[in-house]
């Protein structure tokens, strides 16, 4: 699946990654795997204010991903 990162996560990981994930992988499992592979990004990935989107919709941690999904990890946002 394609995984996109924004803000400081893009700085710490990449803007885009292609990830081979097992069938039935949840957002939580993907986040855990990314945190293990990119320890510098762990704190931001696990922030309670970070969000995850699939198809421009916010999803929660137990959302099950498919190989065709594009998953987006959004660190805490800030406007103004």
């Amino acid at each position: 699946m394609k995984v996109l990162f924004y803000g400081q996560l893009a700085d710490m990981i990449a803007s885009e990654l292609e990830v081979n994930s097992p069938a039935g992988c949840s957002v939580s499992q993907l986040r855990k795997r990314l945190a293990a592979e990119y320890p510098l990004a762990e704190q931001t990935l696990r922030s309670k204010r970070a969000r995850t989107c699939v198809g421009d919709q916010l999803v929660n941690d137990d959302h099950v991903l498919s190989a065709l999904d594009t998953v987006e990890f959004l660190p805490p946002v800030s406007g103004g």
């Binding site: 924004y6 803000g7 400081q8 959004l74 660190p75 946002v77 800030s78 406007g79 103004g80």
Partner: peptide
């Protein structure tokens, strides 16, 4: 402004 500060989808540096 209070909402934009915390909910507008931007990443600032």
């Amino acid at each position: 402004m209070d909402r934009l500060k915390t909910d507008a989808v931007f990443w600032k540096r």
